[in-house]
């Protein structure tokens, strides 16, 4: 295994469709909940400990060999908003394409066959990480980081926020990101023995509600 593969997978330029999504930031900006670097940090912290933790645990469990179908169903159950489920499957499908082209593997081909229209993105992320020779911890880090990095770069575009401030927000969240990744891996290990009910079910109601409102806008810059 090569640890450097994690840099390839976690790179914001990895071509898996993430650039068109704001992680709920566009809805939060419009609602006045994100107005600058301070409120961006609050928003990202909330995402990290909810969506980020769940995604990290799902991705790590997929690396550990938990059945993707069960993980996908468990993720559905943890995603009340239909708009978010659609977005997560779309991103999962795009990541599947990029992952199969980058790290060809029979396991990813089988996943594509099982989910032609896409599985939840963290499920795919875990199996792509596995195909890249990475471990559960790597996948958890990648999912947790993605849960905040996309929102931060979207806010740079939405508010013309100083990009150094946005990057500073991510840097200051790093210690919390470490803890979330640890908790996610711990939960994933429990899933191996106890089943998918051991996955965390932390949720952020405003993200779910915001996503539903956002999906109905006639004019928006981001897909979600």
């Amino acid at each position: 295994m090569s640890r450097a593969a994690l840099l390839v997978l976690a790179d914001g330029r990895f071509p898996a469709g993430g650039h068109a999504h704001s992680g709920g930031a566009e809805a939060a900006v419009k609602a006045g909940r994100i107005t600058g670097a301070g409120s961006l940090a609050d928003f990202c912290r909330g995402r990290l400990h909810t969506a980020g933790l769940v995604s990290g645990a799902v991705a790590a469990a997929a690396v550990l060999g938990v059945d993707p179908l069960e993980l996908d169903r468990a993720t559905d159950a943890r995603t009340p908003s239909p708009a978010l489920r659609v977005a997560a499957r779309k991103l999962g499908r795009q990541l599947m394409r990029a992952g199969r082209a980058t790290w060809p593997s029979a396991e990813l081909d089988a996943l594509a066959r099982q989910f032609p229209k896409g599985a939840h993105q963290p499920v795919v992320l875990g199996l792509v990480a596995r195909a890249a020779g990475l471990g559960a911890e790597d996948a958890a880090y990648c999912a947790a980081y993605e849960s905040v990095s996309g929102a931060a770069s979207a806010v740079v575009r939405l508010l013309s926020l100083d990009p150094f401030d946005a990057t500073g927000v991510l840097a200051r969240l790093a210690p919390e990101l470490d803890r979330v990744a640890d908790r996610a891996v711990e939960a994933a290990r429990a899933v191996v023995g106890d089943g998918v009910n051991a996955l965390p079910a932390a949720s952020a109601p405003l993200l779910e509600i915001g996503a539903e409102a956002h999906a109905a806008w006639a004019v928006r810059l981001f897909a979600s």
Binding site: G17, Q94, R97, R220, L221
Partner: peptide, 21 residues
């Protein structure tokens, strides 16, 4: 219609996954 996150050139050149789909 493909949604581009305010960057058509990214969606047609750097990250073509949504368009291929």
């Amino acid at each position: 219609a493909v949604e581009t996150g305010a960057c058509p050139h990214t969606a047609i050149r750097d990250d073509i996954s949504a368009n291929l789909e």
